[in-house]
Simulated scan of single mutants.
Amino acid sequence: MSLLTVNGLGKSFGGVRAVDGISFDVAAGELLALIGPNGAGKSTTFNMVNGQIRPDTGSIALAGRELAGLKPRQIWQLGVGRTFQIAETFSSLTVVENVQMALISHDRRLFSMWRRAADHRRAEALALLEQVGMAAQADRPCSVLAYGDVKRVELAIAMANQPKLLLMDEPTAGMAPKERNELMALTKRLVVERGMAVLFTEHSMDVVFAYADRMIVLARGRLIAEGRPAEIRDHPKVQEVYFGSGKTFEKKAPLQNPSTREVA
């Protein structure tokens, strides 16, 4: 059963049709990759689902609840988490304090000098950090962490509102191959354990083909292909859009030290 249902989504900027009537769905427990060349409409689609851009046409429903027209914070409160291409954390705060801030936001609580925010739901914050393998570094400032560890903290922050749907914008951008593999394996485990749905954009085709359950491909604002990775790999329209005729995606063993080759 679909958790997220997008139907007839469209958006224009001036005379340019950035997204042209696309439809797709994501089921609980599924990782759906949204890919396409530069200018395909990926970011516009992603930001409409997240509420940063209001669609001109179409609907975006989360478990039957319409999201189109809501603000990002309202969508977050309904159970949609998000990570960003460039990890967003408070570098001056400790790892656990970053997660606590997300919990405070979710609880809509205000704190005064007599009610220390640092005490708020520390146990829950530590439990989230344990799930992403960062509990041992809970009291370190985020400013001293390796980038791969910052990405793990961001994932814990995104999980603070117990999301039904997780939106991941270029989750492995800037990461070494080993870190990419570890982060996506962790994400896949959390998806299965929590029954979440994940919609993610990604330029690394190695990551996409190794971890996505299904893929949708955009070109010039239109959906040109959807299916399982094996189906998309050999899809003639996808090959033409990415490479022109006569070339194919390289077939590599999944989950094994993805290369650093990127497809823009």
Rank of each mutant, 00 (worst) to 15 (best):
F243R: 14
R194V: 08
P177F: 12
L155K: 02
R189G: 08
G51R: 05
L31G: 00
I104E: 02
R214T: 11
A230I: 12
N161G: 09
I216T: 04
D206A: 06
M113A: 10
E124C: 04
G58V: 08
Q77V: 02
F46I: 13
V99D: 02
A160V: 14
D206K: 01
R261V: 15
N7K: 11
K188A: 08
A87G: 05
I232A: 03
Y242M: 10
A225I: 13
G221F: 00
K11V: 00
T57P: 02
A212T: 07
A117S: 15
L183N: 01
R220H: 14
T201P: 01
A127L: 04
A125D: 13
T187L: 11
E182R: 01
R108W: 07
D139Y: 05
L93Y: 12
K252R: 13
E97L: 10
L93N: 01
G195I: 04
S92R: 14
Q52F: 15
A63F: 00
P258T: 04
Q85W: 04
G195W: 08
T248V: 09
L129V: 12
I22R: 00
A68S: 11
G148F: 04
Q256E: 13
I224M: 11
G41L: 06
G15E: 01
G79Q: 01
K178G: 05
F90H: 05
E193I: 07
A160I: 13
R65D: 01
M159K: 07
S23T: 12
S23D: 08
G81R: 04
L103Y: 11
D25H: 14
T83A: 08
M184V: 06
I86D: 09
S204G: 03
V19G: 03
T57R: 03
L3T: 04
S245R: 15
A61H: 09
S43Y: 02
R115F: 08
M168W: 00
S259N: 09
V208D: 05
S12R: 15
N161Q: 14
A127T: 07
I60Q: 07
K151W: 11
E124T: 11
Y211S: 00
A40L: 09
N161R: 03
D234F: 14
W114T: 08
A253D: 08
P229H: 03
R222N: 04
N181W: 02
L93P: 09
V217T: 09
A210T: 13
